[in-house]
Simulated assay, not measured.
Amino acid sequence: MVQRYTQLCPVAFGAGAVSTTGDVAKELGFCKVLVVTDENVEKLGHIQKVVDSLVAAGIEMVLFNRSEMDAPDYSVQAGAALAKGEAVDGIIGIGGGSVLDTAKGISALAANDINVAEMLDYTRKMMPLANPSMKLILIPTTSGTGSESTFVAVISDTTTHEKIGVPSPPSFAIVDPELTLGMPKAITLYTGMDALSHVCEALTSIQPNPHSDVLCYDTIERIYKWLPVAADEPMNLEARENLALASNHAGIAFNDAMVHLGHAIAHSLGATYHIPHGVACALVTPVIIELTAPVYPDKIKKIGACMGLTVSSKEPQEIGLAVANHLRAFQKELGLPTFKELDLTREQILGCMSYVANEGLRFLCPVPVTEAVITESLGKLYDSYQ
């Protein structure tokens, strides 16, 4: 089988990289930009580093700080209206995954003469937009989604309560681990486990490739070693550097290999119950490991090895269960909440079945995903953490 692998955009990585924002914007030909963020990132002072760099490069800027969790459609609409009204020629997003998705959505919408509902409908029908997205620089302040290196923006349709993936590739990524120093423990854990879910699904999708595989295994090793350190020592720069690199590599990996059923389930839980995406991804990943072990037993065994687990069995089901349980124990040690602790019942989790059945990502799973498989997976998702 011939497989292709790519890197979507250049990445400037390292402590202090945010200070190069103006230089990168100049390289891309920007004269006036819309800086997309949220109020929390603004309060942390990260925006000022971007502003100072842009001013030094002689680039004008307009601030949009109304991004919200899960990138709702109305935020994208408001940001695009501002971008058009101010006649900007570039977009810069700085923040967590929801901010980066909002910036990506704005860059797509602002380049086209339609509203956000029409844009989401185009995506549902797999119809291309008339114009390509505006040029876009993305600067993550968390180490989870890897959105700075993926082609899709996940936007929440607040009318239908769906999460829709809108194509909007970034032009450049700036990954500065210093922006993640001091991140609260919960956010550190949720984002780190989000990145881990990306690589576990990328390794087990129907279209993995050797480039993604290499990045995936390295990502697992880094997260397993450094996530507990960063959670307990929020100012540990070495831990933050490793997690930032892991997150970026995970994004590059799944941009080619893609995620599958785990993210279909996580999207359903996030859209229905507004569970943090990283929590949903963390809890569903062991289920995906068990489900795909009969297809990829050697890969699942290697996932375990990257987490310090030696599995001697050659039986796929035993391999899957051993690695899944090892990951569940790791999550428990880290203190991730269960669905019961989130005040969700088994019936509520099972109630997401129809959403998952209509989520396109499920078709990228190597196991045929029937309604019975979805129901069994959702039940196991709840039962495994009692």
Rank of each mutant, 00 (worst) to 15 (best):
P294N: 09
A78K: 14
Q348M: 13
F13W: 05
G14W: 08
V154Q: 02
G262T: 10
L54K: 10
E201G: 02
D121L: 09
Q3Y: 15
V116A: 11
G144C: 01
N115G: 13
L227F: 05
M134D: 00
Y74L: 09
G335Y: 05
V295M: 06
S197K: 04
V55H: 11
H46N: 13
F64A: 04
R362M: 14
V287S: 15
M193H: 12
K332Y: 09
A117G: 06
P294Y: 04
T272F: 02
M235L: 13
G251F: 05
G360L: 11
Y74V: 11
L215A: 11
A25P: 04
N325Y: 04
I206T: 15
D383P: 09
A253Q: 06
P132R: 05
S313E: 07
V373Q: 11
P276D: 06
I349T: 05
L120M: 14
F363K: 14
F330V: 04
D38N: 14
H198L: 02
K314I: 14
G97V: 00
Y122F: 15
G22S: 08
E333H: 15
K225M: 09
V356E: 03
G16M: 00
A110V: 11
L215W: 07
T150C: 02
M61T: 14
L381D: 09
K26F: 00
A186G: 08
D157H: 01
A57R: 14
M353V: 13
V154F: 08
P208V: 04
Y382P: 03
T204H: 03
P177C: 06
T219M: 05
N236P: 00
I139M: 10
L291K: 02
G105E: 02
S312M: 12
G96S: 02
A87N: 15
K49Y: 09
A80N: 01
D298Q: 14
D343M: 12
S384P: 03
T310H: 13
I94C: 05
Y74Q: 12
L364Q: 14
L261C: 00
S197W: 10
R222A: 10
P72N: 01
L309S: 10
K301V: 00
G262Q: 12
C216V: 03
M235V: 03
E201S: 01
K302F: 11
Y355E: 07
V166R: 00
T310V: 12
S149L: 14
L136S: 03
V259T: 13
N242D: 13
T37R: 08
T219E: 07
L227Q: 01
Q317G: 09
G105K: 00
A266P: 04
T285C: 09
L227H: 01
P177I: 09
F13C: 07
Y122Q: 13
I349D: 07
D343T: 11
A108N: 12
V76D: 11
V11C: 02
V259A: 06
S143E: 02
E341D: 01
G90H: 03
E333S: 15
G165P: 05
G165T: 06
N115K: 13
N115V: 12
G90L: 02
Y122T: 06
T142H: 07
H46W: 13
L283Q: 12
G379Y: 11
R240E: 13
A103F: 09
Y5F: 15
A293I: 07
P294V: 07
S205P: 08
G58E: 00
V88T: 04
T180P: 02
A246N: 06
S149N: 15
A56C: 05
K135C: 08
F151C: 14
A239L: 08
I187C: 11
G45T: 06
G146P: 07
R362Q: 12
